[in-house]
Design a protein around this nucleic acid. Structure first.
Lengths: 154, 154
DNA sequence: AGTAAGCAATTGCTCAATCAAGCAACTATG
DNA sequence: CATAGTTGCTTGATTGAGCAATTGCTTACT
C-alpha cells in the first residue's frame, strides 16, 4: 500500500535517497580528480581548458565573451578573469568586435591551440578513467537525455 | 569496423561526448538551483544545510569535526569555518571531546534542529523537482551504483 | 619519565568565483 | 537628432573554498 502522507512530508524512497547521495559524491569527486590528473600532467586547470576547448571549436577560433561564458557555465565576470589569466600566458588574445564596438572577441592564439593539443590526451584519459568507465553497459543516450532534462533548469 | 587508432588518440563516441557534456551541465545547474530554491525559502545555503543534516542523523546529534567534514565532502578547515558560521547563528555549538582533548564535537542545538525541520520540506521539494523528477522510469539503483563507482575516486 | 612522532582542529594566506556597480557604446522613441 | 534606456564588458568588494603552517594534546618508544 502506498504511503498516505502528502509528498511534501514524505521522505525519499531508499533508492532515491541513495541516488541523491551518490550524486553529491560524484559532483565532489569527479571534477576534482579530473582537474588533478590534468594539472599534474600539463598545468591546465579545468576552467581554462574548457575555455580553450570551446574557442577551438568555434568558427575562426573566436567567441564573444558572453557566448563563451555561457558555454563554460561561468559568469561574465568570471570569464573576464579567466581570459585575463589565459591572455597573460599568451594562449588567448582579445580583439575588438567589428560589428559592435562594445564587444570583444576572445581569440585562441597558435600557442593556445598548441597547448590545447598537448593537454587533450590527458583530458580525454581523465574523462574516460574518472567517469565514463563506470557507466559501461548502461544506456548512455537515455542517461544523457535525463541529465539534460535535469540541467535545463526548468 | 572499429576505429583503428589507439584509445589515447581516439575521440569520444558521440553518446559518450553527449553524456560528458550533459554531466557538466548537471553539475553546474543542479546544486545552484537547489541552493537558490532553499535560500529563497529559508536562508540556509546547501553547505550549511548538509552539515546540519548530517548532525541530525548522528547519535546524540554530535560529530567530530573530521568526521563531519568527510561526510560533507569538505576540507577540515572548510568545516571549521562552516561550523563557525552556524555557531554564530546559534544552530550548532562546539564541545570538547571527552575521550580526546584534542578533539571537538559539533553539536546540533535545539534551534538548529528546529531550523533544519523548517528547511527540510523545501530541500526535499527542491531535490525532487530539480533532480529526481528527471530520472523517473530509469533504474535508480543501478544508476546509483554507477555514480558510487565514479565517486569512489579509485 | 622523557622525548619524539603523530593527530585534531584552527588560523593565515591565496585563489577563483559571484554580485553589484560602473563605463562605454548601441538602439529606439519622441 | 537628442536623450532615455539597454547591452557588453570590466572592476571592486566579498565570499567560500583549499593548502600550508601552527597549536595543543596523545601515543609510542627507549
Amino acid at each position: 500500500m502506498p504511503d498516505p502522507r502528502p509528498e511534501a512530508l514524505r521522505p525519499l524512497e531508499p533508492d532515491e535517497e541513495a541516488l541523491v547521495r551518490a550524486l553529491g559524491q560524484v559532483m565532489y569527486v569527479v571534477p576534482r580528480t579530473i582537474d588533478a590528473d590534468m594539472v599534474g600532467d600539463r598545468q591546465l586547470p579545468l576552467t581554462e581548458y574548457t575555455a580553450l576547448m570551446n574557442l577551438s571549436e568555434a568558427p575562426d577560433r573566436r567567441m564573444r565573451m558572453h557566448e563563451l561564458a555561457t558555454a563554460c557555465y561561468l559568469s561574465l565576470s568570471g570569464m573576464t578573469r579567466t581570459i585575463i589569466r589565459l591572455e597573460s600566458q599568451g594562449l588567448v588574445k582579445r580583439e575588438r568586435c567589428e560589428e559592435d564596438a562594445r564587444g570583444w572577441n576572445a581569440v585562441l592564439t597558435d600557442a593556445g591551440f598548441a597547448r590545447l593539443q598537448e593537454s587533450w590526451p590527458s583530458h580525454l584519459a581523465a574523462v574516460r578513467r574518472r567517469f565514463l568507465r563506470h557507466f559501461e553497459g548502461l544506456d548512455l543516450t537515455e542517461l544523457a537525455r535525463a541529465f539534460r532534462r535535469a540541467g535545463a533548469a526548468d
